[in-house]
Simulated assay, not measured.
Amino acid sequence: MVFGLVGILLVIPNPEIISSLSEVGEQAMQMSMAGGGVVYMILGAAGVFLYAYRTLGLGRALAFLLPSVLISLTSELLGTSTGFPFGHYSYLSGLGYKIAGLVPFTIPLSWFYLGCVAYVLARVGLEVDRKPSLLRHIGAIGLGALLLTSWDFVLDPAMSQTSLPFWYWHKPGAFFGMPYQNFVGWMGTGMVFMSVAALLWKNNPIKLERFPLTVPLIVYLGNFGFATVMSLAAGFSIPVLLGLVLGVTPAVVLWLKGSSASATPLAVEPVAKEVSVASVKVALK
């Protein structure tokens, strides 16, 4: 992320910097600009999947990976070809091979890894598995989707309007170049695949005892920080403030609540055990 920020914010606006680099430095910078975004998303997805596998188990990890990738890819393909549900937009180069010539294969991976940490923070923070109820399930899905969408508040204006944009809107919208429809699409897509994951996890709840939430928070804040630097460099402060209120603050609160709940064991009622001893007669010769 840091290497990408240096390239996008420092090197591209000042190309003379490249000429001052050594031959190795020039090659490294060219490789970074050509494939840095791809590596960033692949490593993010791999890291979160490893975390999910180690803490949730392979079944739950796959039960989130597959719906999030397939449903987000469907939404992105619809969006880039019809304008629904995000609005009319197109991806440029820089994010890897495009599926059907429309959506880079890395985009569904980013939906997975940010969606996963957002949902885990919301689910554990609301103690869905400790005190299950329909209201808590709905709340976790809604909050998880809100955390995911709040990241896009900050990311989208900068990534579509930087000196090296990665996508563009056919008709710029009212919110710093983005249509409001985009946020509805993000919330809807996130809620759909989180709902599917919740249903798949129904008979296999998370064991909250000492459940580690630090990695999801670090992943969320790290990606939010990347988007924040991009947005502030582009002069977009209001999206950052909105993301801090609707994304970072709830994420930290959920982390605190979830960490506290994970460290508190459930009260177990003593169970009285009655042992009946049958009388045994021993015949002696």
Rank of each mutant, 00 (worst) to 15 (best):
M187I: 13
T106D: 05
N204P: 00
V11P: 07
W167E: 03
S93E: 15
T162A: 15
W169D: 05
G57C: 07
L102P: 09
D156N: 10
A140Q: 04
F64D: 02
P67M: 04
R210C: 02
M33V: 14
L43T: 14
G36T: 08
F112M: 04
L135R: 12
W167K: 01
H137Y: 11
S19I: 13
S133Q: 08
L244I: 13
L213M: 08
L56E: 02
K171L: 13
S81A: 15
S160D: 04
A34V: 08
L155H: 05
F193P: 02
S259D: 07
L66V: 15
I141D: 03
L199C: 07
S160M: 05
V24L: 15
L77W: 13
P15N: 12
K202M: 06
V248A: 11
A122D: 02
V6T: 09
Y168C: 03
V280W: 02
L56A: 10
V38L: 11
Q161S: 14
F64N: 07
V192G: 03
L199K: 04
N182C: 08
Y180W: 15
H137D: 13
F64C: 09
P67K: 02
Y89K: 07
G225H: 02
F153S: 05
S262Y: 08
M178D: 03
N182P: 06
I138C: 10
M159L: 15
S231I: 03
M178E: 07
P165R: 02
T82D: 11
V275E: 12
S260M: 14
G258L: 07
K98F: 09
L50I: 15
A263C: 05
Q161D: 04
P157D: 07
P216L: 02
Y220A: 02
A145D: 04
R130K: 13
Y51H: 08
F193Q: 03
E16D: 15
W169S: 06
M33E: 14
F64H: 11
P104C: 11
T106Q: 03
W201C: 01
V192K: 01
S22Y: 11
S32K: 05
G139M: 06
V240N: 02
G177S: 10
L200K: 00
P216R: 00
Y180Q: 09
M29K: 04
